[in-house]
Nucleic acid binder design. Structure first.
Lengths: 157, 157
DNA sequence: AATAATTAGTTAGCTTGGCTAACAAACTAT
DNA sequence: ATAGTTTGTTAGCCAAGCTAACTAATTATT
């Protein structure tokens, strides 16, 4: 058979990636009960824990959602005492989100539990397969990043 | 540093995969406008198109959602004339979902558009990186399949 | 200094897509 | 005939996304 064009190849990869991501998350969602946190909350908490204190706007951009969505997530996480909302010194418009000890602890425990089932499946893979997955993670993360997309038809590199 | 245990390795992979999947889908969701179909509808339509006519129950299992969710998705897709709901010959309880020509066409066009941005990012990758991604797709799909996960602590194989 | 423009975040209200509980209809087994 | 099972629907809830419209605070302009 003729070698598929780079474009066709990329589209096939993108399509399968898309589909796999959908099914992966559906599967993981069923594990939510264990951690007690939904995927978006867990994701936001994760950013707060790992990316240190940051403003709501920064968090919204990181999470690729609109400001009102972050307002609610932050409020909910605060009600659970997993984060604190602090005034920004020097700019009274801004609020900073900081993880509490409880939040940090819950993140690690909960997240581990949440991915436990997936981790088990990964651990059950033959070494070669697991290696393939590990090798692709960097690219995957890069491709999943919002700025990975060429704006319209630029960056044709 | 000491080589991480297989378990720790698997957990780290699972964790990053989880995170990447979340961000990937968020990114893709913003492309929804182009196709006019949301991710769940597109996914369901895809199954209907590729897995041929199937019953609502089968579709629900495939999509890993509960029956009422599928009822609604099917109703919406039918309202858009993308699928038809037919009586099952020989069992009046059952409904079969069949893709219309319009549905099949829209799937192919829409899905391509939907993943276009992702495909562009993939196409922009250096060949080696793109190869890594392609190599991991099979494993990724396997891991994303619902039965890939050991139920509780069974299926340790 | 006053005012205009911009920025950060919130509130209100809508939409989609999950879920459970309770049900109707149809099929199957006793 | 009747009891139980299976298939799908209806009703009603919740989470999490969005836009539009707003307040408060900062920055820029006159």
């Amino acid at each position: 058979m003729p070698r598929p064009s780079r474009q066709a190849d990329a589209e096939r990869i993108a399509d399968r990636l898309h589909s796999a991501a959908i099914h992966l998350l559906r599967r993981l969602r069923t594990e939510d009960d264990a951690s007690g946190l939904s995927a978006p909350r867990l994701s936001a908490l994760s950013v707060i824990v790992f990316a240190g204190p940051l403003t709501l706007g920064e968090l919204a951009r990181r999470e690729q959602v609109q400001p009102p969505t972050i307002t609610r997530v932050a409020r909910d996480l605060e009600a659970l005492r997993l984060v604190r909302l602090e005034a920004h010194p020097g700019d009274a418009r801004v609020k900073r989100v900081v993880a509490t000890t409880k939040g940090t602890r819950l993140l690690h425990d909960g997240r581990r539990r949440r991915v436990a089932a997936l981790a088990a499946a990964v651990a059950a893979l033959p070494t070669g397969e697991r290696r393939k997955l590990a090798d692709a993670l960097g690219v995957l993360e890069q491709v999943a990043r919002p700025d990975a997309l060429p704006a319209k038809s630029e960056r044709r590199g």
